[in-house]
Amino acid sequence: EEAIQNFKALLSDMVRSSDVSWSDTRRTLRKDHRWESGSLLEREEKEKLFNEHIEALTK
């Protein structure tokens, strides 16, 4: 649960536009030290959280 919250915070800070792809964003996020705290999450979970974040940005 904490890993999810940390990853959501990372997305909020780093992803402000809804027209970015997961693969491009992932490359950028990996450069942030907080990426490692999400290592407990599966890749699919990270992508799902990313997609939810993008959906929220479009509303």
Rank of each mutant, 00 (worst) to 15 (best):
N6Q: 13
S17I: 00
L57D: 05
R30Y: 09
R30G: 09
G38S: 15
D24I: 01
V15N: 00
D24R: 02
L29H: 03
L41P: 10
A56T: 13
E47I: 09
S17P: 01
R43C: 15
E42Y: 08
S23E: 15
W35C: 05
T25D: 01
K48E: 09
L49T: 03
I54Y: 01
T58C: 08
W35Y: 11
R27S: 12
L10M: 12
E55R: 11
S23N: 13
L49M: 10
K31V: 05
E44S: 14
K31A: 11
L29T: 04
E44T: 11
K46P: 07
R16L: 12
A3R: 09
H33I: 14
R26W: 15
E52A: 09
E55G: 09
D13R: 02
L40G: 14
D19Q: 10
L10T: 05
N51A: 09
E44W: 09
L11R: 02
S37G: 11
R34E: 03
Q5Y: 08
K59A: 12
W35Q: 02
R34Y: 01
S12T: 13
T25Y: 10
L41R: 04
W22E: 09
F7E: 01
L10R: 03
H53E: 01
S23P: 08
H33N: 11
R26H: 11
R43W: 14
F50M: 03
W35S: 07
K46A: 15
S18G: 09
S37L: 10
K46W: 07
I54P: 05
V20E: 08
S21T: 14
I4P: 01
S17T: 13
L11A: 03
L41A: 03
E47P: 00
S37D: 14
K46L: 09
K46I: 04
N51S: 09
W22H: 08
R43N: 15
L40N: 13
K46S: 08
E42L: 12
E44P: 09
W35N: 04
L11K: 07
H53G: 01
D24E: 14
W35V: 03
D13Y: 00
S23W: 05
G38R: 07
E47Q: 08
K48L: 08
S21L: 05
F50I: 03
K46H: 07
F50N: 02
I54W: 01
W22R: 05
R26T: 11
K31G: 10
D13A: 05
D19P: 04
L10F: 13
S12E: 14
V20H: 04
F7Q: 05
W22C: 02
I4Q: 07
A56V: 09
I54C: 11
L10C: 00
R34G: 06
L10V: 04
M14I: 12
F50Y: 06
V15G: 00
V15H: 02
T28R: 14
K59E: 06
K8C: 03
K59Y: 04
N51Y: 12
E55C: 08
D13G: 01
H33M: 15
D32W: 00
L49S: 02
G38L: 13
A9W: 01
V20S: 11
K8M: 06
K59V: 12
W35D: 09
T28I: 14
W35K: 05
L49H: 02
I54H: 04
S23A: 12
V15E: 02
E2C: 03
S17C: 10
L57M: 13
I4L: 05
D24T: 10
A56F: 12
R34A: 04
M14E: 08
R26C: 14
R30V: 13
E55V: 12
S18P: 15
S39Y: 08
I4F: 06
K48M: 10
F50D: 03
K8I: 04
R27I: 08
N51R: 10
T58H: 09
S21K: 11
S39P: 11
L29Q: 02
S37H: 14
R27C: 11
R16C: 09
Q5I: 09
L40S: 14
E52T: 06
R16Y: 05
L40E: 13
K31N: 13
E42W: 02
F7D: 01
S21P: 07
S17H: 14
D24H: 02
D19A: 07
D13M: 01
K46M: 14
D13H: 03
V20T: 11
H53V: 00
D24C: 04
R30H: 08
V15M: 00
K48T: 08
L40R: 13
E2A: 07
L29K: 01
K59R: 13
R16I: 10
V15C: 03
A3K: 07
V15P: 01
L29D: 00
E2K: 11
G38N: 13
L29Y: 01
E52V: 02
L49V: 02
E1M: 09
S12I: 07
T25A: 15
L40Q: 14
K59P: 12
S17E: 09
